[in-house]
């Protein structure tokens, strides 16, 4: 989304001018997401995820002037994170966890159908699968952090839209529209994750 990228560009400009609050905003908005992004790919090794997420942010900070706002800032940071994961695994002769294509599995097909067609129901045996949790988390990790926040508040904390709007410091109408975009982005990310597609740029 153009507006989102504009605000990302503005944040980077403020960081480059040395504004402390801009740095805090940048770190708070992105470290958690990058850490989770790395954690899933490092087999839940928290120490490795910390090292990789920190290295990715340091590398990105060095290259801040090259951020042009053509993708969401978080997506741009993920490219650094992927690079750091590869370097980490190469150095330690480890294989990163990959999300190969799972699309052909019947339970995945059922899940994708239920996401597309609201009349389909998700059976409990599908919901209880460990692999499904990992795929959902990976899909959430692919979203810009504010989409993840909105979905989590709405569907896990059961927050009303007004409360989400308050937390996001926006109008209820804008929050509703953000939720719609976040749901679409999640469906897209989940489908891509299940088919083993590499991350695409999320608006």
């Amino acid at each position: 989304m153009r507006d989102a990228f504009d605000s990302d560009r503005a944040l980077v400009r403020r960081m480059l001018s040395g504004e402390e609050r801009a740095f805090e905003q940048f770190f708070e908005a992105n470290f958690g997401g990058l850490y989770r992004f790395a954690l899933l790919r490092m087999g839940n090794d928290g120490e490795a995820a910390e090292e990789v997420a920190q290295a990715a942010l340091c590398a990105a900070v060095k290259k801040l002037t090259t951020y042009r706002g053509e993708a969401a800032l978080f997506t741009w940071l993920c490219t650094f994170c992927r690079h750091e994961i590869s370097a980490f695994c190469r150095k330690r002769k480890r294989a990163p966890v990959s999300f190969g294509s799972a699309e052909e599995q019947p339970w995945i097909r059922e899940t994708l159908d239920a996401l597309e067609d609201e009349s389909s129901r998700l059976p409990d045996e599908v919901l209880s699968r460990k692999e499904l949790k990992a795929l959902v988390r990976e899909a959430l990790n692919r979203l810009p952090p504010h989409y993840g926040d909105a979905l989590e508040w709405k569907y896990i904390e059961n927050c009303p839209v007004n409360e989400i709007a308050k937390r996001m410091k926006m109008s209820p109408k804008a929050a509703e529209s953000l939720l719609t975009r976040a749901r679409d982005a999640f469906r897209e990310a989940f489908t891509a994750t299940c088919s083993g597609e590499p991350e695409t740029e999320m608006e």
Binding site: T111, A114, L115, E118, S120, R121, L122, L127, S128, L132, K133, V136, R137, L140, L151, E152, Y155, I156, R183, F186, R187, F190
Partner: peptide, 10 residues
């Protein structure tokens, strides 16, 4: 509902 269930599951 399906999306909500998926998110709550994770």
């Amino acid at each position: 509902e399906a999306l909500a269930k998926l998110l709550r599951t994770a």
